[in-house]
Design a protein around this nucleic acid. Structure first.
Lengths: 214, 214
DNA sequence: CGCCTCTTGTTCAATGTTGAACACTGATCG
DNA sequence: CGATCAGTGTTCAACATTGAACAAGAGGCG
């Protein structure tokens, strides 16, 4: 996973759960099956958090929980601003063969206000159309390419078309107020058997400890 | 680009053009617009070639062309075998969000005999169906996921479906003898204005020099 | 000739990624 | 109660990637 997608995912995760430590993030990502599609392994979580802290996008609090030290992170204003920029860029950048950034951004959609989501999706739609047009133009010069290269181009067009339809649908839903976005009441309920209340408890403890330390 | 895709691409490029130096590979990749979709910049070509040589999959010949030294690479039997394995694995591994390995393999399809291409595509088809089925099963447990996560799953299903149709079509074409594969006469002609004859000349010189050196 | 720029061919330090391994806690179990 | 096993939280050395920068010829131009 390229640096920028990892940063987007980590920054978003911290925004959702802060204050939070590296292991908790790892557990959450695993439980979302994120590891299946984003390729984040333990090492990159910790090194990514360190990098974000160095850049001033996260703040690291070295707390002592019981007897053991733990590194807990919270976002900074800089970090939240950076998230907005990176999210938007991830949505607007079309790269059919490396769609990870886009999918990561979609997974974190609920951290962004409705209007911005709509704008970004609309921008992606244009970018996609421009890219497809360029591809179509290039088809002319494809007579002298081997046939399997032309076949590959067909696949790309198909993928672009599929994505296009999804964006159109989703954009309509966003404009119709249909998905749960930033600052809105959720229309869905998490499972009744309440996994993760332990994490909530730990986080509450972290909040206190950070407040106590100043 | 993950290590394995870079290695596949470089190994394949050397197989096509050997004996060849790093700069020539770079030029070819640029001229195929490969840099647009595979993300290979100069640095990774040279370091990738070094790695492949260290692993014994390429042989490095330090020649002196005129007055200047040049590092020219040829494949080894080990390397050609490794290419076959990696190619097959790239085709059979389904990862909808990181399709680069698959597309790289398709771009290098002409280095593989027809029967193997057909087998590998058939295997990918099964893998895709299994993956999709699993996804469909998971849909049951999606009632308690936020709606945008369900929307994401829809996109994945659509992409899988598009890819599936392309594979079915392509598999049929491969079985019908339609694409130019390993050891077959090309049914297409490169452009008449003959770019790259200079490279052919350089490569002929490299062949002589390697032979002279033993 | 002397200067400039373009092309060829490569290196390298900074940075990021990987996943195995570490260290500690608490629970279980004969 | 010692052994051992799962869970928690993190580090680290090996490896890969990046792209700017270097070096050396080749051609053009006043």
């Amino acid at each position: 996973m390229a640096a920028t997608e990892t940063r987007l995912l980590l920054l978003g995760s911290v925004m959702i759960f802060e204050p939070v430590n590296g292991y908790q993030i790892r557990r959450e990502l695993v439980s979302w099956n994120v590891e299946e599609w984003a390729h984040v392994n333990p090492g990159s979580i910790y090194s990514g958090l360190t990098t974000l802290a160095r850049r001033g996008e996260l703040e690291r609090h070295d707390l002592v929980d019981g007897t053991r030290p733990v590194a807990v992170y919270t976002t900074t204003p800089t970090g939240r601003e950076a998230f907005g920029r990176m999210w938007r860029e991830a949505v607007e950048t079309v790269d059919l063969l490396s769609p990870l950034g886009f999918h990561t951004a979609i997974a974190l959609m609920a951290l962004v206000p409705r209007e911005e989501v709509a704008d970004a999706l609309a921008a992606r739609l244009s970018a996609l159309d421009v890219g497809v047009l360029r591809q179509v133009e290039t088809q002319g010069s494809m007579e002298h390419s081997p046939p399997h290269v032309r076949a590959m181009a067909d696949l790309w067009m198909g993928l672009a078309q599929t994505e296009r339809e999804w964006i159109v649908t989703t954009l309509r839903r966003v404009r119709a107020g249909e998905l749960d976005l930033l600052g809105e009441e959720p229309t869905w309920a998490p499972r009744a058997d309440d996994p993760g209340w332990e994490m909530a408890r730990d986080r509450a403890r972290y909040v206190e400890m950070i407040a106590a330390r100043g």
